[in-house]
Amino acid sequence: MLHHMISSGPRPVAPFSHAVEVDGWVFVTGQMPTDPANPDAPLPEGIVAQTRRVVENLRIVLGGIGLGLEHVTMARIYLTEFERDYQALNELWPSFFTPGRLPSRTTVGVTALAVGALVEIDLVARRPN
């Protein structure tokens, strides 16, 4: 089992590894819409901007271990304003992936997220053989 912390990755908001890898499976901790270069900066405004930042942070973590979004098999998305933001998220989500190659996904409405975020996303990826 490998525990990965990516030096250029987002500052953790709690005690965790950015990713844990077991037998080629990579479990990426939920990322927040914080800026790794300026972690104390205000969060981006709105669900679209926050989702873009979260996905960029996920790319940084995956890239730090030699993977990309094309290796993602499952995504879990947490929204604090589910009714308001679900449609905008669904319109944006496919733009991050090759057409016809979306990972499986679960989206859940939650009461709150760390750092006051509107969205958090965690991933499961598979390292190619």
Rank of each mutant, 00 (worst) to 15 (best):
L2S: 15
H3S: 13
H4W: 14
H4R: 13
I6R: 13
I6A: 10
I6M: 11
S7W: 10
P10L: 07
R11A: 12
V13F: 10
S17G: 05
S17I: 05
A19T: 00
V22P: 09
W25D: 11
W25Q: 14
V28Q: 09
V28H: 10
G30S: 08
D35C: 02
P36M: 06
N38S: 11
A41W: 00
A41M: 01
A41E: 05
A41K: 03
L43W: 04
P44V: 04
E45H: 10
G46P: 09
G46R: 12
I47E: 00
I47Q: 02
I47R: 00
V48I: 15
T51P: 01
R53P: 00
V54K: 02
E56Y: 02
L58F: 07
R59L: 11
R59E: 15
I60H: 04
V61L: 04
L62E: 07
G63M: 05
G64I: 07
I65L: 15
L67N: 09
E70T: 15
H71C: 10
V72W: 09
V72Q: 10
T73W: 11
T73G: 13
M74T: 11
A75V: 14
R76D: 12
L79Y: 02
T80D: 06
T80M: 06
T80Q: 06
E81I: 03
F82C: 05
E83W: 03
E83D: 15
D85S: 04
D85T: 04
D85Y: 02
Y86Q: 11
A88V: 00
A88E: 14
A88C: 00
L89A: 03
E91G: 06
L92A: 02
L92D: 00
L92P: 01
W93C: 02
S95N: 06
T98E: 15
G100E: 13
L102M: 07
R105Y: 13
T107D: 08
V108T: 14
V108G: 00
V108E: 09
G109T: 07
G109M: 06
A112D: 11
A112L: 10
L113N: 02
L113I: 05
A114C: 02
A117S: 15
L118Q: 10
L118F: 06
L118T: 06
L118G: 08
V119A: 02
I121Y: 01
R126L: 13
P128V: 01
N129A: 14
